[in-house]
Design a protein around this nucleic acid. Sequence first.
DNA 1: CTGAAAGCGCTTACAG
DNA 2: CTGAAAGCGCTTACAG
Lengths: 341, 341
Amino acid sequence: MNSEEIAKLAEVSRSTVSRVVNDYDNVPEKTRIKVQRIIDKFGYTPNASARTLAGKANDIIGLFIADIDITESSDQWLGANSPYNAELIAKVIRSCKKRGYTVLVNTISSIEEIPKMETFFRNRLLYGGIFIGFPYKMKAIADMAEKDFNISFVDQFTEEDDLFHKVKTVNNDNITGGYMATKHLIDLGHEKIAHFTGDNRLSSIEREKGYKKALIEAGIDVDPSLILKGEYREEIAYKKAKNLLKKKDVTAIFSGNDIMALGIIKAANDLGMSIPNDLSIVGFDHLKYTNWTNLGLTTVEIPIDDVSEKGVDQLFNGKTSDHRLSKPQLIEKKSTIKNKK
Amino acid sequence: MNSEEIAKLAEVSRSTVSRVVNDYDNVPEKTRIKVQRIIDKFGYTPNASARTLAGKANDIIGLFIADIDITESSDQWLGANSPYNAELIAKVIRSCKKRGYTVLVNTISSIEEIPKMETFFRNRLLYGGIFIGFPYKMKAIADMAEKDFNISFVDQFTEEDDLFHKVKTVNNDNITGGYMATKHLIDLGHEKIAHFTGDNRLSSIEREKGYKKALIEAGIDVDPSLILKGEYREEIAYKKAKNLLKKKDVTAIFSGNDIMALGIIKAANDLGMSIPNDLSIVGFDHLKYTNWTNLGLTTVEIPIDDVSEKGVDQLFNGKTSDHRLSKPQLIEKKSTIKNKK
DNA sequence: CTGAAAGCGCTTACAG
DNA sequence: CTGAAAGCGCTTACAG
């Protein structure tokens, strides 16, 4: 069943069928109804490839997720396989589905793959795309951003970047998030607060900024030896935490994400320390799966639904530059306690 | 850059360019190299929509995942959001990527959506599709299966079904899985073994069959009051387990999936029982995320990588009927113990 | 308001 | 082995 057959049955031209399908307004109500009735009766759906070739975009949103080789994240939690990304994919799918769109998921595992993604946009295979998880200030991403494709960049550009005002962005307020986590510990009387950073992504850089901001505001000196690169990975955090806890007298740790927090907790337990009595710890992300641990990790929540919804939503916004901010929230559970020392 | 420009530069016709792109063998080596060189030089990629319209399929695999309204699964763990499906999506993406294909993820939340998926195949938007998580013997799925599309059905058809020999299937050996879980408990001396079933999916039906088989083989009567519908959901299992453990004197439980096992454990803990001393429990799935609980749940592993790889792989197999079986494996941890009663 | 026709960029019989 | 041409099924100026 194609537009020609519909046209014949409705006794109009294919042009008119096309106008009805695309909801153009230069079709009188009477004609529209007549044609629509035939379309419904035969369950006609226009051929997507033909539409695309003729100039329309598909009802498909591309989701582009950075994978291991780029971010140096853990082998275990890479790409679509990380719990954060798994939740994100699900949410993006839901947001798209609401609008009648489906999601094409692409994991990017080497820098060379990025420019290849251009054809998706150039050939209108995608209505738009969402990029997430790429290192900050990466050239290949900047090149992409300059191309005027319909793309939403998540946690990729800040106001300080030249390209910011040329692109669509969704940012978590990670500075505030890092600040909240650290402030919470300071309020509990902690002063020797270590911080495990993530990798080369903006989120990591900003969480660290928030950490420093809170310390400085409270008049506590920032001690570089208490800032450790955890790469957002559980095992790395585990090893470094073990080392740290043996040597330094920290009473609290702000971990850049929940996964590292699990590693840190394991290290503390191995050293005979109990959480929160011997060590207070705050995570970041509020992964749903951490609820399964019975420890009750205090953490800063990132509203993944909100990020996804904003990212999808802004693709439907006509403006070439559009900026949205998601607000983090401190989720107090049981892994932090008043400093007793 | 389109095929015409490439043709001009290579001093051949568009036909020849097309033949080179599609790797046809009626092109002399010399011509092939000449054309390929131009293609590489300008990074030419054929327009996907044009190819599709002209008769080729896209390099896209569709993943069709049953969502809540159909399976009556939990609101919390629905569709792409369930940990099992999240892992699956990631694995399918990886298997496809290896072959140069990307994945279009579709969550199906009502039966009416299923026949609509036909256009994806009819218009060759997809090279093939994988269906997973749908209820057993569902009419809409059977209709789909009869259409000769390139589809892999996971845990959807058994040899007893008429359509089995017309379709491509990947099945977990869930009967054996259920048998292994139950046999393990029997070997530990348990006799009063309850079973929490899933929902209306084949996996649930088969795991229950395996449970019964092990009991019968050991000469233990199957007690219907010890078989409870948990719907694969944590909360339902939690409630029913609480009820069950108050009334019945069971010493062990085989839970149809890991998520229900978490609910059952919570119920047992609420009643002051400790695992495994007061109650042995075996789950099913071996979800990676359950490693985060410190309880060490003994479970039956489903090799999600293997299922995904087989499903993707069989789409590239020319035969219209192709069948693969994935083998489950008992993962012994710390949630089971010898029966002391 | 509406239709005939060109065009999107490929693939593939067909003819040579 | 190779090219000219038809055709895939739409959309969209264009003309009326």
